[in-house]
Amino acid sequence: MIELNNIEKYHPAKGIKHYVLRHVSASIASGEFVSVMGPSGAGKSTLLNILGMLEEPTYGTYHFMGEDITSMNERKRIELYRNHIGFVFQAYHLIDEMTVQENIEAPLIYKKIVASERKSRVADLLDRFNMVAKKDLFPSQLSGGQQQLVGIARALVAEPSLILADEPTGNLQSAQAAEIMSLFRKLNREEGITIVQVTHSEKNAQYGNRILTIEDGVVRTDTPVAGQL
């Protein structure tokens, strides 16, 4: 599904190239659940942003579902967002002025899906996540874990094939974090959604089936998870 070939990313700072990523090559197959780990500033988030087409690599090629992303125009990229990729953020990033229901519905509106289908899909997700009672609340009225559930519901509603999650449990207590992680695993196993998450936590990484470790912009290790939780 994802082919990274010799990706480099640097920020020019006062004439010196400040490397974030160096010679990163990796391939992620459909249906994998990959955790990207590494110390702060190693380039994990940048890698995720590149995967999510939010940032462009300085060098190297990136093929997503067989298509070369680096030579793609904005319109095409937006089509990809809409149809194949869902994002989950550490700080949830729900839109404060929208209710739970509206937040989940938003991606469908931009996909120009008709109202009746939007309603049924949102209702379905609310039901699955046990949030029907909270559908008319605003994000500020929810707990962190609940907000993240909404965030995941929003990512799922467009039925993506890939979910990119940047420290999805970073702001959560461990009980809530475990809940989110098992949800991810369930999605991965039962619906075959490919998941790439960035995490600090060794424990959370165990929910996936492969761990990429990045240090100083270089992929150090690439190991499968032995005894998956």
Partner: peptide, 12 residues
């Protein structure tokens, strides 16, 4: 934030 999220959700 709203702008950022919307852009990621695929808004032109």
């Amino acid at each position: 934030k709203e702008v950022g999220v919307k852009k990621v959700l695929g808004v032109y």
